[in-house]
Every structure is written in structure tokens, then in C-alpha cells.
Computed example of a mutant assay.
Amino acid sequence: MQCKENKKEILTETQTTILEKKLIINKSEFGKMPDGTIVEQYKLTNKNSIEVDIITYGGRITSLKVPNKRGDIENVVLGFDNLNDYLNENPYFGALIGRYGNRIANGKFTLEGNEYTLAINNGSNHLHGGLVGFDSVVWDAEPIEGTDNTALKLTYLSKDREEGYPGNLKVTVIYTLSNDNTLEVSYKATTNKTTVVNLTQHAYFNLTGDFSKDILNHDLVLNADAFLPVDSGLIPTGEIRNVKGSPFDFTSVKKIGKEIEADNEQLKLGGGYDHCWVLNGKKGNMRFVASAYDETSGRFMEVFSEEPGMQLYTGNFLDGSLPIPNGGTYNKRTGFCLETQHYPDSPNQKEFPTTTLKPGEIYSTKTTYKFSTK
């Protein structure tokens, strides 16, 4: 999607002028890092009053407001209203994830004959980029306003051996909000040394708009005939298993909670769903990969992606310790994630689609989330 750049008309939070025929971005200060670095927040709004708030710390979506079937606009993603809560330990609420989304076994992989050791931050494994992944750095931001869509371009340079990864990795992520109520997330990266890359977005959705409610009554469809079984450390075993006849079959509409407590070894390992599905269709082709629907609110979300896999995580480890901005706490299974990505542990599993990026190549992928009501 192309946007006409117009940096001069970026509005501060206190300005309320609405420019006809141009979608607007509002910029404000969200807080300061311990070293004094200012964290900015950008609010993207379309003509239908859908709003998405993004902060430069971790490129995180802090709020995504969409209408229900009565026209009431409410936030449908879990998050916080202040920087301190994001700086404290939290389960990657709304964050950009890298260099490698999901797990790498034992925090090690071999590339071109060289073994690399990564930060260990999930049992004996490496998870979501390490101790200071892309979720925990401040990105550079460039807002772009246009007539059909509005976008925020985020850039970050991950230096050679950051968290153990080889190569200087230049990363660009663009969030684009369109007038058809689609939020697109596009990713690009280049490197000066052979490395591995697997970027994703870690929004937790609850389409009810009421975070005191769980997500078990959401209707879910996953365009995937197979998933990846895991071991006790949630590392894929290497098997690609057909979902037919199992609790992992979401090829037709099914409540998230229908079989989440089934007597199933894989569900017990994940404490619920915390697995990667093998998406139907060819990697690199944009296609439908998932949908979610909440009957009470009427909100319907469709997901399209170029990625080969998608992690469904059902908030199994939310434990009531994190605050909801308007009161209360985020309890178990009050949000679900649909993280489009390559498969976990791909650098160690040669049968999985490669996540290797070499100098001169461009890592490029995108995922979109389209919202409507019914």
C-alpha cells in the first residue's frame, strides 16, 4: 500500500483539527526510558474512527479500537496505559518480536559451520529474541499520512552479536491503517552477515472489548491442516501432524474453549494452545489464514499472511498479576494471539522452511488484520 508522505501536518495530542480527505496521525509523549530517551506514541485513525495506538518502545500496539455491531468503539487488544508497566516484566503485550519469534532449542544454532550461542530466557531455550529483544528497544519512527491510508514506519538497527545473533540487521516495520478497516504489518530486513530472522507481532486480542471476560467463546477458524507437536520445553519435535480428529482442528468454525481442556498430551504441555500451525497455501503468497468472531459484540477479524506458520497462544499464563488500565487485572485466557511466523526452532530443523538471511537478500513479509461486524 502506498501512502503520500506529509510530515508537516503531524498533529500534537492537544490539536483537534480534522483535515478533510486526509487521514491523520496524532503524536504524543508516552514516557521516558530510564536513560532519558523519550518514548513516543502515535495514533493512527481512519475515516471510520478506527484507531490504533503504537509506541516506539518495542513497536507495541497499545490499543486498537474498533466498533461492535451497535457502533460502539472499544479497544480489543490487551495492553497498558503507561510506560512503566511495559518496562516491567510482561508477556510481550502488543510487541514486535525479533530477531527470532518463538523458541530456539538450547539457545544454539549452527550457520555456515559456525555455532552461535544466544541468550537463554525461557527455561533452557531462547525465546522471542532474548533478554533484550525487539520488544524491549526504542525504534525510530516516521509517520506517513495519506488519503486512503495512514502509516507509521519504524526502523531499528540490530548490531552484530546483539543477543548472540550474527550480522548487523537493518529492520523496517510499517503499520498501515486503511479505510477498509484493515491493519497491515509489513516487515523488511537486510544483513551484512549471514544470519537468521523470524519477525512477528504479538498482539493479544479480545474481541468482546471487555477484558474481564475470557476468550473461550470466540469462534475461531485456522486455515491449517497440520500443526507442530512439541516436547516438554515447547520445542517442535520435527513431526508435522494432521489436525483431523484432534482438539487442534480449527479448519471449520469452533469455539476456542470447546476442547482446550481435553485430555490431550499436547494441550497439557502447553497449558492450552501454545503451538504453531502449518498454514495451508504457498509460503510467500498472501492468503487467508485465520478468522475470529465474538457473537456478543459482533466483531469479526480476518487474518491474511504470507508466512508459512502461525502460533496460536491462548493466554494460558496470564495470572491476574497485570493491571487493566480501567481497573481489574488480566486473568488466564483473557486474550489470544495469532502470531504469523516461520516455524519455531527452524535454524536447528533442516526440514522446516529456512529462516536464513544472507547479505544481498531482503527479508520481506506482511500480515493483515481486517475488522468488520456481523
Score class of each variant (00 low, 15 high):
Gly36Met: 09
Thr37Asp: 11
Thr37Tyr: 02
Val39Leu: 03
Val39Trp: 06
Glu40Thr: 12
Glu40Asp: 14
Glu40Ser: 10
Glu40Ala: 00
Gln41Asp: 06
Gln41Glu: 15
Gln41Phe: 10
Tyr42Phe: 14
Tyr42Ile: 09
Lys43Val: 12
Lys43Thr: 15
Leu44Asp: 00
Leu44Lys: 05
Leu44Met: 07
Thr45Glu: 14
Thr45Leu: 07
Thr45Met: 06
Asn46Pro: 03
Asn46Cys: 10
Asn46Val: 11
Lys47Leu: 10
Lys47Arg: 12
Lys47Trp: 07
Asn48Tyr: 09
Asn48Gly: 08
Ser49Gln: 14
Ile50Asp: 07
Glu51Gly: 01
Val52Leu: 10
Asp53Thr: 14
Ile54Thr: 08
Ile54Trp: 01
Ile54Cys: 04
Ile55Trp: 08
Ile55Thr: 12
Ile55Pro: 01
Thr56Cys: 05
Gly59Trp: 05
Gly59Ala: 09
Ile61Gly: 00
Ile61Val: 15
Ile61Trp: 02
Thr62Lys: 11
Thr62Asn: 07
Leu64Ile: 01
Leu64Gly: 09
Leu64Asp: 02
Leu64Glu: 01
Lys65Met: 08
Lys65Glu: 02
Pro67Ala: 12
Pro67His: 06
Asn68Pro: 08
Asn68Glu: 08
Asn68Gly: 12
Gly71Lys: 01
Ile73Ala: 11
Glu74Met: 14
Val76Leu: 04
Val76Arg: 03
Val77Asp: 09
Val77Trp: 03
Val77Ile: 13
Leu78Gly: 07
Leu78Arg: 09
Gly79Ala: 13
Phe80Val: 09
Asp81Ser: 13
Asp81Arg: 04
Asp81Lys: 12
Asp81Met: 03
Asn82Met: 03
Asn84Lys: 14
Asn84Glu: 15
Tyr86Arg: 03
Tyr86Asp: 07
Leu87Ile: 13
Asn88Phe: 12
Asn88Ser: 15
Asn88Trp: 10
Glu89Tyr: 14
Asn90Cys: 05
Asn90Thr: 14
Pro91Leu: 04
Tyr92Leu: 13
Phe93Arg: 08
Gly94Ser: 09
Ala95Ile: 00
Ala95Thr: 03
Leu96Tyr: 00
Leu96Ala: 00
Arg99Thr: 15
Arg99Met: 12
Gly101Ser: 15
Asn102Gln: 11
Asn102Lys: 08
Arg103Asp: 07
Arg103Asn: 02
Ile104Asp: 05
Ala105Ile: 00
Gly107Val: 04
Lys108Gln: 09
Lys108Tyr: 00
Phe109Leu: 03
Phe109Ile: 00
Leu111Val: 09
Leu111Tyr: 03
Leu111Thr: 05
Gly113Lys: 01
Asn114Tyr: 09
Glu115Thr: 15
Tyr116Leu: 05
Thr117Met: 03
Leu118Glu: 10
Ile120Gly: 05
Asn121Phe: 04
Asn121Asp: 08
Asn121Ala: 05
Asn122Gln: 12
Gly123Pro: 05
Ser124Asp: 14
Ser124Gln: 13
Asn125Ser: 02
His126Leu: 06
His128Tyr: 09
His128Lys: 09
Gly129Pro: 06
Leu131Phe: 00
Leu131Glu: 15
Leu131Arg: 10
Val132Arg: 13
Asp135Ala: 12
Ser136Tyr: 06
Ser136Val: 02
Val137Phe: 04
Val137Glu: 01
Val138Asn: 13
Trp139Val: 02
Asp140Met: 03
Asp140Asn: 06
Ala141His: 01
Ala141Asp: 02
Pro143Asp: 00
Glu145Cys: 12
Gly146Ile: 13
Gly146Pro: 07
Gly146His: 10
Asp148Lys: 10
Asp148Tyr: 07
Asp148Cys: 00
Thr150Asp: 06
Thr150Pro: 04
Ala151Asp: 07
Leu152Met: 02
Lys153Glu: 11
